[in-house]
Computed example of a mutant assay.
Amino acid sequence: MYSVNKELLNSLEKNIYSILIQEIKRNNTLSITDAASICDCSPSKISKFVHKLGFKNYKEYLAFISGKTATVITNESERLNKFLENFNSEIIDEFTAYIQKFEKIILFGYGPSFIAGQYFEYKLRNLLEIPIWAVAHETSINDLLSKNNLVIIFSVTGQFKSFKELYENVISKNSKVAFILEENRTEFLEAYDYTITLSNYLQNPELLPHEKTRTTFFAFIEAVIKKLENSFFENTKQKI
């Protein structure tokens, strides 16, 4: 599981991010020394940059951005076991804190991914005292959208339909978008500010997006809800 939130970066780090995305497309074995040279900074600055994004080291960052971490596992039970073994609770903590900054949450997904949004809406309504809506159509987002809202988009592959117009509309309203993807999409990392990639372990590539399972979404949702519940109970104890 990986989280890339460009909102955490300063202007210099955002410039490094943009440069390295393009360079790694051309050279997926780019060394940290060469990366530093291209970005006109020191290797230690590159190390600090990747740590700030949540990666253990430059090697892990390079593997993720280049897509080298992805492995197809057609046996679903084995794939889900691998996913759970590599579950990153720190990303859950960060995301849980992030969603509590907004005045409204809108959940969106195409096809079966919308069902994950509906389930998340049901769970969140019991824990957050803000409007929360799961919608199946982009026009519904536009009707609900106002300032300081968060639109959470669920997508297994990110390939069913472009999110560019929707994203730009949300940003124009001074709101934010968070993508929850199962599979890593380099173009999403390049174009959007906040992307959580759930798994390195891909489903059968012969399956169409709507045929793939959404099990990782529900595991992610349950972990977020559990974190929120724990925070709620802790706050309640302190008030007592």
Rank of each mutant, 00 (worst) to 15 (best):
N174K: 07
V151R: 01
T69S: 10
L30Y: 07
K48E: 13
I115P: 08
N86F: 06
I106P: 00
C39S: 03
L198T: 02
L208W: 14
E183A: 01
Y192Q: 08
C41N: 05
F114H: 10
S155V: 01
I141T: 00
K173I: 01
A134G: 00
K56I: 07
D143R: 05
F102K: 09
S44K: 08
S162P: 10
A136D: 13
L8S: 11
T186Q: 07
L107A: 02
Y110S: 09
A219M: 14
E76K: 10
N204F: 00
N149C: 15
S42C: 05
A70W: 04
N57G: 08
P209E: 15
S77M: 14
Y58R: 01
D193V: 03
I73A: 13
G67N: 11
E183M: 00
S199C: 01
K56P: 05
N27T: 13
K101D: 14
F64V: 08
A136M: 09
S199I: 00
Y61W: 10
T213G: 08
L189A: 06
I225L: 15
N126V: 08
A223G: 09
Y119P: 10
K237L: 07
N204K: 02
Q203A: 04
I106K: 00
F49W: 10
E211A: 12
I225N: 11
E78P: 04
Q203G: 03
L12K: 11
E129T: 04
T157E: 09
I221M: 08
V151E: 09
S66C: 10
A136L: 08
Y119V: 15
L30T: 06
K237E: 05
Y122P: 09
S37M: 06
G111W: 02
R214T: 05
K226A: 15
I152Q: 01
F233P: 07
I132T: 06
R26T: 14
F232Q: 14
A70V: 10
D93A: 09
L144Q: 04
F179R: 02
S140V: 06
N28E: 10
I240T: 15
D34R: 07
G111T: 01
E229N: 12
N235H: 06
K52A: 05
Y61D: 15
F188H: 02
K147C: 12
N200D: 15
E222K: 10
F120G: 00
L84F: 09
Y98K: 14
N28W: 13
L128P: 12
V224I: 15
I130Y: 11
W133Y: 15
K82H: 13
Q100R: 05
I38T: 01
H210M: 11
I92F: 05
